[in-house]
Amino acid sequence: MTDFEIISPATIKELFIVIKKCGKDNFRFGAGYTDLLNELRKKTEPELKIINLAQVKDSQFTGIKTGIRGLWIGAMTTIQQLVSNQIINREFPVLHQSASSLASTQVRNVATIGGNICTASPSGDVSCALVSLNASCEILRVDGRTRMISIQDFFLGPRKTLLNRDEVLYRIFIPQNKPTSVSVHSGFIKVGTRQSMECSVVSLAFHIQSDKKSKIIKAGLAIGAASPTIRFTESACNFLIDKTLKNISESIKDEFAENVVVYASPISDLRASAWYRKEVLYNISKSVLEVNPS
């Protein structure tokens, strides 16, 4: 177990001061602690400081707000807040479902969306949904400057993000569904052995918008636990444009699934082999287009 000192800033301003003060010291951010404590228990890090974000009072940082062009979700919003948010449930079922499938009620009550993103796990459920939704990350720097980064670009590798030491993830922006979209086929498919407390063996997030003629006008698909980072499957998304969900032939489903699977470069580990991950990813990709599955 790593011993650590904990510092709890109360405002964003204080947070910046604390980060500056830490300078080159060994520090980590703590949000919901559901991953961090497990990690620290397994190793010994010298002279570690934890900057505790849980006490920061800032309504933008901790809540969900509707903007003109989309939804802003503070990084410290808990997974449970996502689950119970009606707008998310209605407009972005993929996010609702991914949040609902994360770990367990106890974990969802403390784990945060920012933590899920910044852990940068290839199997992060909520992160996978956000990639399918073309979300962006608003990043604050200690000098007060902000930058917006597409969430796809945010992940550099397993547990690696492009956040600098003097930056924090502040908010996540999810663009509204297209004005011409009249129906949304959206969901999160999580594959694992058990229903709760499961880390995705492979996952697929999809958010497909169709117009009044039932033509697909925008599609977002992301795959998790199938490559070093969560991948947005752009060619599979483009492949769907102008197609109609209700009459898709078997061969088109296969072609679509092949378009998804090209983004997968899974590993074999304790939980599943690379073969299994690819095989199942292919099957569940097809299932996205089986609107009336047998």
């Binding site: 367990s104 052995t193 058990r194 229903q195 709760s196 407390m197 880390c199 304790l270 939980r271």
Partner: peptide, 14 residues
């Protein structure tokens, strides 16, 4: 797999 992460006992949901 000396942990509940990878030694999978079933949960209430199952």
């Amino acid at each position: 797999n000396p942990d509940f992460h990878n030694y999978k006992i079933l949960t209430a949901s199952d």
